[in-house]
Simulated scan of single mutants.
Amino acid sequence: MSDPARPPRIDFSGFAEALRRQANNPLQHRPITTAISRPAQQSRLTEVELIWIEQKLEHWIRFGRIAQERIVTRRTRIMGFRPGAIFAFVRWMANDYGTVSSRIDVVRAVNAGEPYTTLPFVRPGGEVLLHIESWPKVSQVLAAIDAVEAASVDPCDAAPDHWRHVHNRITAGQEPRAYTLERHRAWLRRREIEG
């Protein structure tokens, strides 16, 4: 019998399964591996370090358009995102007794010269649209991401204000409003007018 005060032990079926889910999701864009030869171009990307030590330390990208992928070791990869790209970065850690920490951040990669917030495993950092800790709340964010996809919208293209809204509502213990196709169309029109 599990202790209700302790978050349940998460049984991730592995990094390969997470990648398979992404590949099977029609709304999820597959990683694009590009060879960027000049260091100046590479430094413009926001780099995220993904680590996968089964049932101990697991980092993955829930959504985002990956501009570059670099495999460092069997357990470590570096993903690069172009300025303006929005992505969700999930970090989970456990020990022999269960989940130690779980976090999710929805981040916008910044342009050179823009202010940014530093985050572990994200270089140089980014504009944090959502930051949630503890597995029950992280699972609510994952459900909100699923709801955006159910509305036939790629979460990368959803309005940044929606992710701020989700952050504020979940932090306050309330249910976030659904992201509908109408709200998405309104966001696209606003972006056209501002752009």
Rank of each mutant, 00 (worst) to 15 (best):
76 T>R: 15
94 A>W: 06
128 V>N: 03
141 V>N: 00
87 F>H: 07
158 A>D: 00
152 S>P: 10
133 E>I: 04
105 D>W: 03
101 S>Y: 09
83 P>I: 04
191 R>Q: 08
67 A>P: 08
189 R>T: 14
182 E>K: 14
181 L>F: 13
111 N>G: 11
65 R>E: 11
131 H>T: 03
95 N>M: 08
143 A>R: 08
127 E>D: 12
174 Q>T: 12
133 E>F: 01
132 I>E: 00
140 Q>M: 05
181 L>M: 13
113 G>L: 08
70 R>V: 12
91 R>H: 11
64 G>I: 09
138 V>D: 00
128 V>E: 00
168 N>W: 02
146 D>S: 13
84 G>R: 02
133 E>D: 11
123 R>P: 07
69 E>V: 15
161 D>S: 10
192 E>W: 08
182 E>R: 15
187 W>G: 04
133 E>K: 05
99 T>Q: 13
94 A>N: 12
108 R>T: 04
65 R>W: 10
93 M>H: 13
151 A>D: 09
124 P>D: 11
188 L>I: 14
165 H>W: 03
75 R>I: 14
181 L>V: 14
145 I>R: 02
150 A>L: 10
65 R>C: 08
115 P>Q: 09
113 G>H: 11
113 G>E: 11
191 R>P: 01
157 D>H: 12
73 T>K: 12
160 P>C: 03
153 V>D: 06
92 W>Q: 13
188 L>V: 14
157 D>V: 07
105 D>F: 02
148 V>N: 05
151 A>P: 08
168 N>D: 12
99 T>M: 14
98 G>S: 09
166 V>G: 02
182 E>T: 14
173 G>S: 08
189 R>I: 13
156 C>I: 10
117 T>S: 07
67 A>N: 12
143 A>F: 04
168 N>Y: 04
173 G>M: 03
126 G>D: 03
170 I>D: 01
118 T>N: 10
119 L>H: 04
126 G>H: 02
73 T>E: 10
149 E>Q: 15
123 R>C: 11
170 I>V: 05
121 F>D: 13
128 V>L: 01
168 N>F: 03
87 F>W: 07
138 V>H: 00
138 V>N: 00
72 V>F: 11
156 C>Q: 10
85 A>T: 15
136 P>V: 11
89 F>Y: 09
178 A>L: 14
90 V>L: 14
162 H>N: 03
78 I>M: 14
115 P>F: 08
155 P>N: 09
153 V>E: 04
108 R>A: 05
80 G>S: 10
